[in-house]
């Protein structure tokens, strides 16, 4: 973890200070560098990634969930899903990423994959309903990408939404960056 933060994040994206590390346990002592807090910049997607550049003007909405997934909803009613930097930091070095299959139909709350890190299998859930239209095959051979660029190139799947982007963008289970930040501070 410290290696990641020092080497990859160059001090730009630190984990939040929290007394109880949500999913990391003692093995990922992010609180030891805890004077740095998240701000809204921590929740920005990598604007060079496919998840962002899929539409020329970028996603219409970027949303988050309490289970630490992010969602980039594009105007063609598809959404890219990944896990947040916070989740990736807490989990530690990933050794395997399970991605769904193209054609899978998912409902809100269905598992769409999992991350294995330091012997922990952690489920990833879809916060939206629809059909998987693309998966990130790079993750299958390069699981470490989820630690390097969780909010960008390490998107997990692209889902064709059952509803329009505008409707999904208003879903109650989806948080804005500010709301997600607030939920992290509560913990």
């Amino acid at each position: 973890m410290l290696r990641n933060i020092a080497g990859l994040r160059s001090g730009l994206r630190f984990a939040p200070q929290i007394s109880k590390n949500l999913i990391g346990g003692k093995i990922a002592p992010v609180s030891s560098i805890g004077f740095v807090r998240f701000n809204s910049n921590n929740h920005k997607l990598n604007t060079d990634s496919r998840a962002f550049k899929y539409s020329q003007e970028g996603p219409s909405f970027v949303k988050f969930t309490e289970e630490h997934e992010w969602l980039a909803i594009h105007k063609d009613d598809t959404a890219f899903i990944g896990i947040t930097s916070y989740a990736s930091d807490s989990l530690g070095d990933a050794t395997f990423i399970e991605v769904p299959e193209v054609g899978d139909r998912v409902e809100v709350g269905d598992s769409i994959g999992s991350v294995e890190s330091v012997k922990s299998a952690s489920e990833i859930y879809s916060p939206v309903a629809g059909e998987v239209v693309a998966i990130n095959e790079t993750l299958e051979s390069s699981p470490q990408l989820i630690n390097e660029d969780p909010q960008g190139e390490a998107w997990i799947a692209q889902i064709k939404l059952n509803e329009t982007a505008d409707v999904v963008g208003q879903q109650e289970n989806l948080l804005t960056a500010e709301e997600y930040e607030a939920s992290l501070q509560e913990q």
Binding site: I23, E67, G109, S111, V118, K119, S120, A121, S122, E123, Y125
Partner: peptide, 10 residues
Amino acid sequence: SAYKLSKGRS
């Protein structure tokens, strides 16, 4: 040891 994390539980 081995671990599992899912919605709300571990």
